[in-house]
Design a protein around this nucleic acid. Structure first.
Length: 586
DNA sequence: TTGTTCTAATATTCTTTGAGCATG
DNA sequence: CCATGCTCTTTGAATATTAGAACA
C-alpha cells in the first residue's frame, strides 16, 4: 500500500541517487585529466603503438577508408594490451550480494579521493571495473584521442516494488486513532494515524552456495559477496572518437570489446536486478556530458523511458525531469559531431521495434492504438503503421488533439466554413444551464447531446467585427470577448484597468467591458472582466483620464486615512485625559 | 517464475455570463 | 433612491492515473 507521500519519497530518492552519481562521475572525469596521471599512463604505452597511431594521418595514408580501418585495428590492439596490463579486478562496491549495486559503498581503503589514488591503481596494476574504464579513458586522452567516460547510472526504481511492501506493512492496531485532524491530507484509511505504518524489513536469506567460479568470473574480496562476472555488461565504459571516421567507438576495456556501431552489448538482461540500464551519460574531456542512452538500448521508448520519472504538466507547460538534467550537464552549443550523433541516435530510436504488449503502446512516442486515444484525440490521417494482436497500429505523429468550437473560440479561433467535425463525443454538461438543456433533450427522446471536435487545421484566427463610428460591437452580454489579444476588434484598443469604465462613462465615450476569461464556482461560470475596450481615437484620452482619476482617488484615500488616524489619536488622547481626571477627582 | 492485463481506488480535469448586501 | 463594488463560495461528474491483484 503506497500513499502519495511514499510515492514522493521514492521519486525524490531516485532523483537524488541519479544526481549524486552524475556528480560522482563528473568528479572522476575531471580527476582523470590530471597531468601526472596522464604522463604516467602515456609512459606505459610501448613505442610501437605510438608509432602506429602516428601513422594514421592524412598525409601518410590518403585513403579515408584505410585510415578508418587502421584506427580501429589500433584501438583493438591498444585495448588488448591494456587488458593484459591491468589484470586484477576487484569489486567496485564491496557488500552484500542481496543489495543492488547502487547500495554498495566502497569501504575506506577502496575510496578514491584524488588523482593520486588513481595513480596508485596504475602502480599496483589493479582496480575495479569502473577504475579500469576511467584509466582507459585517461590513457586515450593522454594519447590525444578524444575519449568519453560513459556511465550507466544505477538507481533505485521510483515505482513501487510489488510485494515487498505489502505483506510487511503492519498497522498499529492496538493504538486507537486519536484525534481526527480535519486538515489531514491522507485518505480515509490513513487518517488519524499519528505515525507511519511500521514496515518490517524481512530480507530473504539464502544459503550461500559455494559454486565453482565460471571461467569468466572473478571472486569478490568479501567471502559472502557474489562473484563478479567479468563478461557481464559493465556500468562504466569508454567511448573513443575515431577522427578518420568522425564517429564514436564503444570500448569496454575489461571485456576487450571494441564496436564501431551502436549495439546492445552494454545492455544488461531484463532480469538482471543489479544492473539496470536507464540513463547513459557520456562525459567528455571538457567536463560536459551527453545523453547517449539511445545508442545502447533497443527499447528506449517502450521500456527505458518508463523507468524514468514521468514528465509533469504544470500550468500547461510540460516539464521532463531527465531532459532538464541532461540540459544542465550538456554543452551549450552543439558541435558538428554532436548534430551527427543526435541524428544517428534519433534514427536508431525510430527503428525501435514495436512494443510487445498493449500497455507499452500507451503513451508510446512513436506508435499509438485506437483504444488508448483520449476523449479529444483523433487519428488523422488514419494511416495504419502495422498490426498488433489483430488491431491496427497507428503513428503517434498522426494523433491530433481536437477541440470543440467553444474551446477553439476560447483560444481566439473559429472553425472554417464547411468543416465537418472529425469526431463526435458526448457533451459534458457542467453548468446548471447545460444540465438543464441536457435534461430537456433527454425528455424529447434524444439521448445525450453530442458535440463536434475539430482539429487545429480546421480553424482560423477569429476576427471580431470592427469598431464603427466609435461604437464597440459587443456580444449578447454587452461586453467584448478578449480571451487572447487577437480577439480585439479592429479599430479598438484595450485599456486593461478595472475602473476605466467609470471614467469612460463620465467622459461619455462609448465602451464595452473586456472579458478575459472565466472563473468557476457552484456550477457557474463567471466572466473575469479586466478593463474596457474603446475606439482607438479615444484610447489615449481615456487612459490619461483614468490615471488622473487614480491619482486623485489615491490622494483622497490618503487624506481620508490620515483624517481617520488623527480622529483615532484625538479620541485616545481624550480617553487618557478623562481617565486621568477621573483618577484625580475620585 | 515473470511479465501483462484487469480492476478498484484515487487524482485530475473540465466547465464558460449571479445574488445579496452595504455604502456613498 | 440608485449605482457601484464587495463578498459570498470553491460544485461534481467524466476522465486519467495508479497500485495491487489476478492471470497466463
Amino acid at each position: 500500500i503506497v500513499t502519495p507521500r511514499d510515492r514522493m519519497v521514492r521519486l525524490a530518492t531516485h532523483k537524488w541517487t541519479v544526481l549524486s552519481l552524475i556528480a560522482h562521475t563528473r568528479a572522476r572525469n575531471a580527476m582523470i585529466n590530471d597531468e601526472s596521471l596522464r604522463d604516467r599512463l602515456y609512459g606505459l604505452v610501448p613505442n610501437a603503438y605510438l608509432e602506429k597511431l602516428r601513422m594514421i594521418h592524412k598525409k601518410k595514408i590518403p585513403l579515408q577508408t584505410e585510415r578508418v580501418r587502421l584506427f580501429e585495428i589500433f584501438l583493438e590492439d591498444l585495448t588488448e594490451w591494456w587488458r593484459d596490463l591491468l589484470k586484477e579486478i576487484t569489486l567496485f562496491g564491496i557488500g552484500n550480494s542481496t543489495k543492488p549495486t547502487y547500495m554498495r559503498l566502497a569501504d575506506v581503503q577502496h575510496r578514491t579521493r584524488s588523482s593520486q589514488d588513481m595513480l596508485s591503481y596504475v602502480e599496483k596494476m589493479s582496480g575495479s571495473r569502473e577504475d579500469n574504464a576511467q584509466l582507459f579513458a585517461a590513457l586515450c586522452r593522454s594519447l590525444g584521442i578524444p575519449a568519453r567516460l560513459v556511465i550507466s547510472i544505477q538507481c533505485p526504481g521510483w515505482t513501487a516494488s510489488p510485494s515487498s511492501t505489502k505483506s510487511n506493512a503492519v498497522a498499529n492496531s492496538n493504538e486507537t486513532p486519536a484525534k481526527i485532524d480535519e486538515n489531514d491530507y491522507r485518505g480515509e484509511k490513513w487518517r488519524g494515524l499519528d505515525k507511519p505504518l511500521e514496515v518490517k524489513y524481512q530480507p530473504k536469506l539464502r544459503a550461500i552456495k559455494a559454486k565453482p567460479l565460471k571461467p569468466t568470473e572473478v571472486a569478490a574480496e568479501e567471502a559472502d559477496a557474489e562473484p563478479i562476472d567479468t563478461q557481464s555488461p559493465p556500468t562504466m565504459w569508454v567511448e573513443v572518437f575515431s577522427k578518420p571516421w568522425q564517429k564514436w567507438i564503444t570500448v569496454d576495456p575489461i571485456r576487450g570489446i571494441v564496436t564501431p556501431t551502436g549495439n546492445r552489448r552494454m545492455e544488461p538482461s531484463n532480469s538482471d536486478k543489479s544492473n539496470r540500464l536507464v540513463y547513459v551519460l557520456a562525459f567528455e574531456e571538457d567536463g560536459h556530458a551527453r545523453d547517449v542512452t539511445a545508442r545502447y538500448t533497443r527499447t528506449l521508448y517502450s521500456r527505458i523511458s518508463r523507468m524514468r520519472p514521468p514528465s509533469t504538466k504544470k500550468g500547461g507547460e510540460e516539464t521532463d525531469w531527465w531532459s532538464r538534467v541532461v540540459a544542465s550537464v550538456q554543452r551549450q552549443e552543439r558541435f558538428a559531431r554532436d548534430f551527427e550523433e543526435d541524428e544517428e541516435m534519433q534514427t536508431a530510436a525510430s527503428r525501435e521495434p514495436m512494443p510487445s504488449s498493449v500497455a507499452a503502446f500507451k503513451d508510446h512516442p512513436v506508435y499509438a492504438l485506437e483504444k488508448h486515444l483520449k476523449r479529444d484525440e483523433v487519428i488523422f490521417p488514419a494511416k495504419q503503421a502495422g498490426t498488433f494482436q489483430g488491431t491496427p497500429v497507428f503513428l503517434r505523429a498522426n494523433v491530433i488533439a481536437c477541440r470543440s468550437s467553444r474551446q477553439w473560440y476560447n483560444e481566439g479561433r473559429v472553425i472554417n466554413e464547411g468543416e465537418d467535425a472529425l469526431k463526435w463525443v458526448k457533451s459534458r454538461g457542467y453548468t446548471l444551464a447545460n444540465k438543464r438543456a441536457e435534461e430537456e433533450a433527454r425528455q424529447q427522446g434524444m439521448d445525450g447531446l453530442q458535440e463536434g471536435l475539430y482539429a487545429p487545421f480546421q480553424t482560423e484566427v477569429y476576427t471580431a467585427p470592427p469598431v464603427v463610428d466609435g461604437k464597440i460591437p459587443t456580444n449578447a452580454f454587452g461586453n467584448v470577448d478578449l480571451f487572447v489579444d487577437s480577439m480585439l476588434p479592429p479599430g479598438g484598443v484595450h485599456i486593461p484597468y478595472n475602473g476605466a469604465g467609470k471614467v469612460a462613462k463620465k467622459l461619455e465615450i462609448p465602451y464595452a467591458e473586456a472579458v478575459v476569461g472565466f472563473e468557476f464556482r457552484k456550477h457557474r461560470g463567471m466572466p473575469k472582466i479586466k478593463g474596457i475596450v474603446v475606439a482607438e481615437e479615444y484610447g489615449e484620452t481615456v487612459t490619461e483620464a483614468f490615471l488622473e482619476y487614480e491619482e486623485e482617488a489615491a490622494a483622497k484615500d490618503a487624506k481620508r486615512k490620515k483624517e481617520q488616524a488623527l480622529k483615532a489619536k484625538r479620541k485616545e488622547i481624550n480617553a487618557v485625559k478623562i481617565k486621568a481626571r477621573l483618577q484625580r477627582d475620585y
